[in-house]
Amino acid sequence: MIDQALTTHDALEDPRNAEILIYVNGALVPRDEAKVSVYDSGFMLGDGMWEGLRLYDGVWAYFDEHMDRFFEACKAVSLDVGMDRSGILDALEKTRAANNMHADVHCRLMVTRGPKVRPFQHPSLSRSGPTMVIIMEHSKPVDKLKDAGIRLATVPQVRGLPMAQDAKYNSHSKLNCVIACLQAEQAGADEGLMLDPHGFVNTTNACNFFVVRKGAVWTSTGDYCMNGVTRAKVISLCQANGIPVFERNFSLVEAYGAEEAFLTGTFGAQTPVASIDGKPIGDGTRPVTARIQALYKKAIAEHVAAVSGA
């Protein structure tokens, strides 16, 4: 019998999500009525950027860092968002208030180049301004993610060179990662562990990847992975709390031999890894991961208190 597959975004079912209001270009629309044009550049070409945010006690965690990443990517592809970060915060707060949301909420902010006048590639065919959609859901990670851990399978799909499609773009064009996820699923795992173009361990199809070896935390150089906000927070927390941490190249041999491994992301924070390619990682005790989880939880609480003035 094969265990039910998990993902790093598995959440507890919440009936309130059937009645959420979704922000579409300034309007708040019931979930079943929220639509964009089939001519939209995001639907047609994946021409857009998105950002995932998480709400803790009324505060959008690390909002400025998320907006730094978002606006940098939009600038790089000449995508006019149509508002500044304060306008985005206003839109988030308007959507949050309309849905009566306060905590355990995940948000997907999406901006595309907007509808096209004809169904072709050239960006100049998008002439009516950007499309902005904000989806917020009541979303709490399932406990099994923390206990059982994620099963990874190394996949042939790689994180490519920046001149192909830079992984720093949190773009709507996610086919590379979707293929990796499918390959992992077909191998009987939950998510795909992706290598970089040189064969070094890089990231999964959805999250950044860390291992723990002899008490030290390792992650990739960052050259081929998303510049994750949670990834950066984990690195800084390790540096501030006497946990050796290295951004470096390492191979699958070193990943298989790790005492612990975990993933980072806005939704799940730090998610333990149970196995890679069927090989159990460590003995399941995960003391370093547990310490990092506690440090991150404390950092979130301090951040929320500072932003809210509590």
Rank of each mutant, 00 (worst) to 15 (best):
M163Q: 10
G82A: 10
D190C: 03
H172C: 06
E72K: 04
G114P: 08
V201Y: 01
E19K: 02
V29W: 06
E137K: 04
N25V: 02
N100C: 13
A167E: 06
F262Q: 02
A180Q: 05
Y23Q: 02
D90K: 08
T289H: 09
A299P: 08
R286L: 05
A98L: 01
I235T: 09
K214D: 15
H122W: 13
E302I: 06
K297D: 14
R118Y: 14
R231Q: 00
W50P: 05
D32R: 15
S251L: 13
H172E: 00
Q4K: 14
S78G: 09
G42T: 01
N249R: 10
L193H: 00
K297V: 04
I22T: 00
Y23L: 03
A27N: 13
P130Y: 07
K140T: 03
S124A: 15
P119H: 09
I22G: 00
G87Q: 05
R286P: 09
Q239F: 14
R108S: 07
A301W: 07
D68R: 11
D68T: 00
L145S: 07
S220W: 01
A27G: 03
D80C: 05
T203F: 03
G192S: 04
Q157T: 15
I235V: 14
G114I: 05
E65M: 10
C238N: 01
V38W: 13
A187I: 06
T154M: 09
D166N: 09
E65G: 14
L263N: 05
P280W: 07
K146F: 08
I20P: 10
T264P: 12
V201S: 06
E260Y: 02
A232Q: 14
G26C: 12
T7M: 10
A184N: 07
Q183F: 04
S124T: 10
N176F: 02
C181Y: 09
V253P: 13
R291W: 13
A294C: 13
R69V: 01
W50M: 03
T219K: 01
L45S: 00
F120G: 08
N99Q: 05
V29E: 10
T95M: 03
G87R: 02
V133Q: 12
K116N: 05
Y23D: 03
Y56D: 12
H66E: 12
G278M: 00
D147S: 13
V36M: 13
G268R: 01
K75W: 01
R54S: 08
A187N: 02
L6E: 04
E19R: 08
A290R: 14
G52H: 00
W218K: 06
E302K: 02
A310E: 15
C207P: 02
A261E: 03
Q270H: 13
R69I: 01
I243L: 15
G129A: 15
L92G: 08
N202D: 15
Q157H: 13
I276D: 03
E137C: 08
R16A: 11
